[in-house]
């Protein structure tokens, strides 16, 4: 099992434990974490599972593919640590990863 720590835009924190192999988006949706809509169901084609990844964890992630980069490009709230959480598969090395959800998904 891998732990994911979600912080919402107002600062309130919730942790969930999920099996390796699922995405951060799925971890959020299956545990009722609010702030992630995931309208396209995880196919990297809507940008409504946008999260800000804690900078300490950024280096451990696989580089984003061009599709994710393009979809994030349509967000008005993109920052350097923006990722689509459906594209981050949880592995043992990511145990404890911390992400913040934006105020709005767009």
């Amino acid at each position: 099992m891998v732990k994911v720590v979600f912080t919402d835009h107002a600062g309130s924190e919730q942790s969930v434990e999920v099996a390796t192999g699922v995405s951060i988006m799925e971890a959020a949706v299956s545990n009722g974490i609010s702030g992630i809509d995931a309208d396209c169901g995880g196919s990297c084609s809507c940008a409504t599972c946008h999260v800000y990844v804690d900078k300490a964890w950024l280096g451990k992630l696989d580089a984003m593919n061009p599709d994710e980069d393009a979809m994030l490009g349509l967000s008005t709230d993109r920052q350097d640590n923006s990722r689509l959480s459906c594209q981050i598969r949880l592995r043992d090395e990511l145990d404890g990863i911390a992400v913040t959800t934006p105020e709005f998904q767009f």
């Binding site: 169901g41 084609s45 979809m71």
Partner: peptide, 20 residues
């Protein structure tokens, strides 16, 4: 359940800009 997963806004780069 999952009412948001409809196609009306399209998906991908041309997804409806005014959806919100």
């Amino acid at each position: 359940p999952n009412a948001r997963q409809h196609l009306s806004f399209g998906f991908g780069l041309h997804r409806c800009m005014g959806n919100r």
